[in-house]
């Protein structure tokens, strides 16, 4: 982040409640242009809620969320969503659309002409590492989980949104596929320099991808740090997360020692 970085998304005293249950409790957060912010936390901590407030899939009970300086409630919801890419766990691809139509979804909604749309689909498929000749005409059920997730990313990027939201996109994948996708995605994000907000409960993913990590618990951000500072943090929950990694490392070390 540079000195003159611009705030593109801002949460101001945001509450979100369902009945009496407080999901988000006075949340304040500024997200800068071009950064990759990780929302890290356990299930129910409010990280997905935070994400959905940005493209107004849900609306705050109190407080305001600003996107490009304008409250989401002042945005036309449809317009807002079309300029924000969204990737969900298990992709949420339309089962009755071919890969091509799935990727071209937002361009179609925006009435791009056919040639431009087709060109964009090819670019996007190349970008996520899938051969257009092989995959464009397939249907989601003919793809592996990893391939579907790639299409999900391609769909989110197709209309060239300035903000990209990802809700545990690699959560349901097998470990090897997940690692490959994480690496590729890290490179992709770096090249595209889009503002990315990424929800996960996997600290390693957070460290690999994030420029900043927001650790959430009970609807609040309890720690907001760069990955470098995060690993040094003395915050108890952060330590607990870090221990899951070091415990694994220790086990691996002892396993290697035994074989030697």
């Amino acid at each position: 982040m540079t000195e003159n970085a611009q705030t593109i998304v801002e949460f101001r005293n945001v509450n979100f409640q369902i009945g009496a249950a407080k999901i988000l409790d006075d949340l304040n957060l500024q997200i800068e242009q071009g950064e990759t912010l990780i929302l890290l936390g356990e299930s129910g901590c409010g990280k997905t809620t935070t994400l959905k407030l940005i493209n107004r899939l849900i609306e705050p009970t109190a407080g305001e969320v600003f996107v490009e300086g304008k409250s989401t409630m002042d945005w036309d919801a449809i317009k807002l969503r079309r300029k924000i890419g969204y990737v969900l766990q298990e992709a949420g691809l339309f089962p009755h659309f071919s890969v091509e139509r799935n990727v071209a979804l937002v361009p179609s909604l925006e009435n791009w002409d056919e040639a431009k749309k087709r060109k964009r689909v090819l670019e996007m498929l190349e970008l996520v590492g899938l051969s257009p000749q092989k995959f464009a005409k397939r249907f989601p059920h003919e793809l592996s989980g990893g391939q579907r997730q790639r299409i999900g990313v391609a769909r989110a990027l197709a209309a060239n949104p300035s903000i990209l939201l990802l809700d545990e996109p690699f959560g349901a994948l097998d470990p090897i596929t997940r690692m490959n996708l994480q690496k590729e995605f890290a490179a992709l994000v770096k090249n595209l320099s889009k503002t990315t907000i990424f929800v996960t409960h996997d600290l390693r993913e957070a460290i690999l991808l994030g420029t900043r990590i927001a650790l959430m618990e009970k609807g609040r951000i309890i720690l907001l740090e760069t990955p470098e500072n995060f690993v040094e943090s003395s915050q108890p929950l952060a330590r607990a997360y870090l221990e899951t990694i070091s415990a694994m490392a220790k086990q691996r070390d002892s396993a290697t020692n035994n074989t030697n």
């Binding site: 899939l57 079309r82 969204y86 969900l88 949420g92 909604l109 769909r155 939201l165």
Partner: peptide, 27 residues
């Protein structure tokens, strides 16, 4: 209709009529 598919449709910026016509009714 799969909740994830519907959520994706809304999140992509489809209007209610588009969600209905292009996603919910065909499925």
């Amino acid at each position: 209709v799969d909740a994830k598919v519907r959520e994706a449709a809304v999140a992509m910026g489809m209007t209610d009529a588009q969600v209905l016509r292009q996603v919910e009714l065909p499925l």
